[in-house]
């Protein structure tokens, strides 16, 4: 990066460090922080959508739909989420390839699960073996986002379901008394009012989601944990211009600080948001705000 970095073996002290921290692999490490942020940015709304769908299904007056919604919420809570992560990575991949297999392959006579192998024809591979590396990582990222959204969607569904139940019944009845249809009551009265009840649960969920991001590593994505292990492990002068001992502990310390800072900032922002949403609400928080203002 800098010109004086041409011969690292001559450097020492801070100049060495400045060169060391600006190598190409370190930039991969810095980019992976963006991967984490991007995952959060994509997953949070997707999980919220899944949660909204789940909560609506659980509230449905039609029993089978309601059971599916409740089952979705209950299933994720009884089992460690990491099991789902490990499961969905393979299951999704196989599901997609198997579906494609049914359409594009010629010899459908062969069984797909053959002993200890999962075999589809080359044309059914997703992404194709010939496609460029960027598609492979994009596909990996997409499955990761879907898995995260599915698991966290169940938690969001639980929170939103509770919030929908918490909206005072009288409010909905007032809407009905004005001649609104069930759909109008839902859209104009229930949904706008439920957020303040859902916010504590959703804030908690956001903090949990942040803390779940290192699990990306288990899904085979080159995330911050991957690079911290990679860069921190001992390097000999033979294969690396910047030899050093086992520095993984420092890299993980860095990650710890990153997560602590991220959590703290989130807590502050969410606290402000709660204040904002509480104003004018007929809740304890809203009442406190009203008294403080008066």
């Amino acid at each position: 990066m800098f010109e004086y970095c041409a011969d690292p073996s001559q450097l020492s002290g801070l100049t060495w460090l400045s060169c060391y921290l600006t190598t190409g692999t370190h930039f991969n490490f810095y980019w992976s922080f963006l991967t984490v942020l991007m995952l959060l940015a994509v997953t949070a709304p997707t999980a919220l959508a899944f949660g909204f769908g789940g909560a609506m299904m659980a509230r449905s007056p039609f029993l089978p739909v309601s059971l599916i919604g409740r089952g979705y919420i209950a299933a994720v809570r009884g089992v460690p989420d990491i099991v789902y992560f490990l499961f969905f990575v393979i299951a999704l991949d196989q599901g997609i390839e198997w579906t494609k297999h049914l359409f594009v392959c010629d010899d459908l006579g062969q069984p797909v699960w053959n002993g200890t192998e999962f075999r589809v024809c080359p044309a059914a591979k997703v992404p194709l073996a010939t496609s460029s590396a960027i598609w492979h990582s994009a596909y990996g990222f997409a499955t990761a986002v879907f898995t995260f959204a599915l698991v966290f969607g169940a938690f969001a569904a639980n929170v939103l379901y509770g919030a929908m139940q918490a909206v005072p019944r009288a409010q909905l009845e007032t809407g009905e008394a004005y001649g609104m249809t069930a759909r109008q009551v839902f859209r104009r009265i229930l949904v706008p009012q439920m957020w303040v009840f859902a916010l504590p649960g959703l804030s908690n969920l956001w903090l949990i989601l942040i803390k779940a991001t290192p699990l990306l590593f288990l899904l085979g994505i080159q995330d911050i944990v991957y690079w911290a292990r990679e860069l921190g492990s001992a390097k000999t002068s033979g294969n690396n211009p910047y030899p050093h001992g086992d520095w993984r502990v420092f890299y993980f310390l860095g990650l710890l600080v990153f997560y602590l800072a991220f959590t703290r900032v989130s807590e502050i922002v969410l606290g402000r948001l709660t204040q904002r949403l509480s104003s004018g609400q007929a809740t304890l928080g809203g009442e406190q705000l009203r008294k403080a203002g008066a």
Binding site: F252, L255, Y259
Partner: peptide, 19 residues
């Protein structure tokens, strides 16, 4: 409490092991 609740358990395991 803040350090252990504010950071992922996964990172805590890694860090502890490396230490």
């Amino acid at each position: 409490i803040f350090v252990f609740r504010g950071s992922p358990l996964f990172i805590q395991f890694f860090l502890a092991y490396e230490m």
